[in-house]
Design a protein around this nucleic acid. Structure first.
Lengths: 239, 239
DNA sequence: ATGCATTTGTTCGTATGTATC
DNA sequence: AGATACATACGAACAAATGCA
């Protein structure tokens, strides 16, 4: 077993145990070096690996050592990104995933939401409405906030994270096609309507129905970018 | 931008473009060093990062440099593992995900399978049956093979990979509770019956029904390990 | 605002262990 | 068995960035 790997797994272990909390700092490279009885290069290789896994961050000149970071979905997002590129995942694959997961999250939200949750969602839609024809960046921020709020209600962290990651990848894949297209205003109006429909379905409390409305909404939004056969497969998810 | 990061992204880029195919080798560290105009340590830090991301593997003594690896879901599995540990995901979260995804894969299989696919599934079940009361390792190998074969039929790479990863994490979480429990033989018999039911549903060609049978099968298998409230939430996925 | 101490980023030279020919 | 090529690992050094007095 290689020297730097031992260091990596020891520090990883400490972080997982909660022994090293986010915001805490490792000691300096020179301290770690004597602490683990290895050379500085070895310490640095270990730090580079931890850094690339999103566990720590180190910057030159900082007095205390590398900082322990809070968990971030970024490594997961990266894995999925490379999966998209290397395995040649298509828009269809991603949309399928989103319809499946986000629809389910809406179903959970319909079944388990509280009063306050509905208010949060309403505010997101209002912010979207306000930004129509105006600020397309504020619009998409409110859009993302809506989806995240829906996901939070359901409360399954795994679904939430996966869905966020895939949503990000979808945007990457077709950013140019939609955000900057012509008739941008119309499309934004359209999106507001669809979000309202999803909101109503969630408020209605019927999980099956909310799932379906959400999936149909995603389907319609992206259908134009998909082939006939792909659309047929996606329809399997609609009842 | 740091020196080693430039190297990492250049090599990553070459791999993504397919310029560096799996099985090909990088040149030796000394060559890379002069090629990129950096020192040995910097090259090594870059290699460590690439290695931890599952893109290359380097071993001492090998004549040519580091080997380019085929894509593997291992980094993704790692991200999910750390998500499970750090975010304290429970068995419920994982089972929810599996019911959702694997049920859908069964639905796809029901709708799109071919003759040959059914034969593959049959053979997996036969291998399971043969290993009952005998070889528990062969049993679980056949079990995994069945699920992978089902997933392949549906053909959505993203779902397949996510499902495999989550299945692996589930086994980690409760390996002790089931595999080594008492009445192991009975449980294996039971599993064979459930797999047959899933198989019949797939052959039947009704996607909705196959989805349901599969989800119910997973639900029943794990229900005993879950609380009342968790079970109620999972039931939302059954129609 | 300046200068000093500390720390990281990077380089270089060297020694050691290991696989292949 | 020996030679070669390679990766692993060490330690000293300098530059650049940061924080503090």
């Amino acid at each position: 077993v290689r020297a730097y790997e031992a260091i990596v797994s020891q520090i990883e272990e400490a972080i997982r145990r909660g022994d090293l909390q986010p915001g805490a700092r490792l000691t300096s490279e020179r301290d770690l070096m004597s602490q683990f009885g290895v050379s500085r290069s070895t310490v640095r290789e270990a730090l580079r690996v931890l850094e690339s896994n999103g566990l720590v961050r180190s910057r030159p000149g900082e007095q205390r050592g590398a900082e322990i970071l809070a968990f971030s979905a970024e490594p997961l997002a990266q894995s999925i990104r490379s999966l998209v590129q290397i395995e040649r995942l298509t828009l269809y694959d991603l949309i399928f995933f989103r319809m499946l997961v986000e629809g389910t999250l809406c179903g959970l939200a319909a079944a388990f939401h509280k009063r306050a949750d509905l208010q949060v969602l309403t505010r997101c839609i209002e912010r979207m409405q306000a930004a129509v024809h105006e600020d397309s960046q504020a619009f998409s921020l409110a859009d993302v906030a809506f989806h995240e709020a829906v996901a939070e209600i359901g409360g399954n962290r795994l679904l939430i994270v996966c869905n966020e990651v895939v949503r990000g990848n979808v945007s990457n894949l077709i950013a140019d096609k939609i955000a900057s297209g012509e008739r941008r205003g119309e499309k934004m109006e359209d999106a507001v309507l669809r979000h309202r429909a999803v909101y109503d379905a969630i408020r209605g409390g019927d999980a099956q129905n909310a799932t379906n409305v959400s999936r149909a909404s995603i389907y319609e939004y992206y259908a134009a970018h998909l082939s006939r056969g792909e659309r047929d497969r996606l329809k399997l998810l609609l009842t």
